[in-house]
Computed example of a mutant assay.
Amino acid sequence: MQINLTHTYLISVHPRWASSFFLSHNPKTIELRKGSFGTCLKPGDNIAIYATLPTAELLGIVRILKRQSLTVDRLWQASQQGKLAKVSRPQFNAYTNFT
């Protein structure tokens, strides 16, 4: 018998991007994170999405399907040029400090 342990993590996300996880049509499916947070994630884990001020509320929970650590160029391609992360190229560049 195999026991799969999953974890639930809480992250805070700007309301603009937090709410896009829960769109009924074409939801956000990639979350961009700097640092080492993602290294602990495994498929099946859950992330509770907290929208920061001015919303200041827990919007819901999403399940991790896959975690990848990619170079900036590969991340832009994997996000379908920002479509899956709901960011424009200038927003992506500003976040990743890549110009």
Rank of each mutant, 00 (worst) to 15 (best):
R33K: 15
Y50F: 15
R63P: 00
F21K: 03
L58T: 11
G38I: 10
G60L: 04
G44P: 06
V13Q: 03
R33E: 11
L23W: 01
I49T: 09
W17Y: 14
G60E: 03
E31I: 06
P15W: 06
W17M: 01
L65W: 00
K34W: 01
I47Y: 04
E31H: 06
I30P: 01
S20W: 04
Y50A: 05
K42C: 05
K34Y: 02
H14K: 13
I49D: 06
E57F: 01
V13A: 02
V62M: 05
P27H: 05
E31R: 05
K34P: 01
L23V: 00
F22K: 05
S12P: 00
G44I: 03
L59R: 09
I64M: 00
P43N: 10
H14D: 11
F37V: 06
S24Y: 07
H25V: 14
F21I: 03
K66D: 11
L23N: 13
A48T: 14
I49Y: 10
T39P: 00
A56P: 00
N46M: 13
A56D: 09
F37I: 09
I49R: 04
L65S: 03
K42F: 03
G60M: 04
L53Q: 13
A48N: 12
G38C: 15
P15S: 07
D45H: 01
Y50V: 08
Y50Q: 07
L23C: 03
E57I: 04
F37E: 07
L59S: 09
F37L: 13
N46R: 15
S24I: 09
F22R: 07
K28V: 06
A48M: 14
V13F: 02
I30G: 02
A18V: 01
G35K: 12
L53R: 11
L65N: 08
F22G: 07
L59I: 08
F37W: 15
G35P: 08
T39M: 14
I47V: 15
N26C: 07
F21L: 03
G60N: 04
S19F: 06
N26F: 13
